[in-house]
Amino acid sequence: MSDLIYLYAAYTVIWAGVFLYVLKLHLAQRKLKQETEMLKEIIDEKKNKKNL
């Protein structure tokens, strides 16, 4: 078996690892933004009810 397989495996591990971690952070940020929007709506609704 050629040693090149180890080179490919190492680069796959590195870039898959970096990509997955960046993706994990990106998805967490997106989820938190959605939650923020939801909370804003709830707070606005509560404010409107109070004003009525």
Binding site: D3, L7, A10, Y11, I14
Partner: peptide, 11 residues
């Protein structure tokens, strides 16, 4: 070492 040495740049 040949091409496998290229692992070391990102390792």
């Amino acid at each position: 070492m040949g091409d496998v040495q290229r692992i070391f740049y990102f390792h």
